[in-house]
């Protein structure tokens, strides 16, 4: 049941996208997100769709796997759509329900919002599905290194992130296990109202927190035992290096961004 969360789970495959430098993928995702909020018309939408479709195709990750992440934000999407439908002001209402009025402008923003949200999830899934958490934080660390000059603890942040990411699947598995263990003792996590459900979570949350602290403690001990002292003077086993494909990917990304900007200027 809990295994079905895809957001932030790596899908192993042998593809061009998998082999790209994580920095390229990070920048690409950033550009992609910016472009999602830049486009205004159908042509821009087509260009973004083409870009997304190309990345999905190249990544060799099954399409269904990517859309799975959408399930998690279904309710958010519905609420956003409803708010936009009825609360966007316009001139001539096309539909009235009591105090609620729907304008053509509302329909348009609602559709745009839905596209943006779903594209956002699917697009970022391309990155998280093709990049291991370790690569991702490596990329972040290297990409943000210039900031350490002005005193930002880049290495510490990257280390915290990679530890946090590393623990997500472990904690999911642990949750699954404790849930089953309590269900074996007759616990009920499904029925009842909100308050009862929240109360029923206690037998799950207490052991989960206890184990999270225990794991954190063990990890800190293990790191210290291996003489971990932070980022200073620390070298990488696999330092990041750009290759030809990375350069081409950068080029493609920035051409894409330029096209989206031009399209926005002309309102297409």
């Amino acid at each position: 049941m809990l295994r079905d969360i895809t957001l932030g789970q790596y899908y192993p495959a042998d593809s061009v996208i998998h082999k790209l430098d994580p920095r390229v993928k990070l920048v690409g995702t950033l550009v992609y997100i910016v472009s999602l909020f830049l486009f205004k018309g159908p042509v821009g939408f087509l260009v973004i769709t083409a870009f997304l479709a190309l990345s999905i195709k190249l990544s060799k990750v099954p399409f269904l796997y990517m859309v799975k992440g959408l399930k998690a934000i279904m309710i958010l999407m519905i609420i956003t759509a409803l708010f936009n439908l009825f609360l966007t002001p316009g001139e001539t209402p096309i539909f009235t329900l009591g105090p609620l009025k729907m304008y053509p402008e509302g329909v348009k923003t609602a559709i745009f919002m839905l596209i943006r949200l779903s594209y956002l999830i699917v697009g970022t899934s391309v990155m998280t599905l093709t990049t291991t958490p370790n690569q991702l934080t490596d990329g972040l660390e290297k990409g943000l290194m210039p900031l350490s000059v002005i005193g930002v603890p880049v290495h510490a942040i990257a280390m915290m992130m990679s530890i946090a990411l590393r623990f997500i699947p472990i904690l999911i598995e642990e949750t699954d296990l404790i849930m089953k263990a309590q269900m074996a003792r007759g616990a009920d996590f499904e029925t009842g109202g909100i308050i009862k459900k929240a109360k029923n979570m206690v037998p799950l949350l207490v052991p989960l927190f206890v184990s999270a602290f225990r794991r954190a403690d063990d990890l800190a001990m293990a790191m210290e035992a291996r003489c971990y002292t932070g980022g200073k003077g620390r070298t990488k086993m696999k330092p990041l290096k750009y290759s030809g494909n990375d350069a081409r990917a950068y080029l493609l990304t920035f051409v894409f961004l330029a096209v989206v900007i031009v399209l926005r200027i002309y309102n297409l």
């Binding site: 296990l177 089953k180 052991p207 206890v210």
Partner: peptide
């Protein structure tokens, strides 16, 4: 379960 002591709460 294995390590059942982890489910005490």
């Amino acid at each position: 379960f294995q390590y059942p002591e982890h489910q005490l709460f």
